[in-house]
Design a protein around this nucleic acid. Sequence first.
DNA 1: AGGTTGACCGTGA
DNA 2: CTCACGGCCAACC
Length: 109
Amino acid sequence: MKPETLNFFDRVYAVAKQIPYGRVTSFGAIANYLGAARSARMVGYALNGSVEKDVPAHRVVNRIGLLTGKHHFDGTNLMQQLLENEGIVIKDNQIQNFDAVFWDPRLEL
DNA sequence: AGGTTGACCGTGA
DNA sequence: CTCACGGCCAACC
């Protein structure tokens, strides 16, 4: 597979798959790691089909730890259930202790 | 080939 | 501190 074939979407999938268990990251962090900090919107756009890409998109939220994409999931509270299952506390679609569970690929990778 | 959209982010009032 | 607007980039129609 040539790298040229890998679109932005594929790169996002690759990073999202590297998200550790019980950790979450933001679109901007992923975009920043990919070198496209201004393309944070594309990150979410890519994750739109990540559910079928074996990518834990439920670990990806916006910069404030808000489950903005839960509306895109199969169920309504499915995303929240998955996160809570990993030990992450969520209240009103917002991750508590976001700074503690935050995982920055730019720093970790 | 062009216009519109989008799971965002940052700054301003 | 909270609400609102603009910008930016890539994919989709």
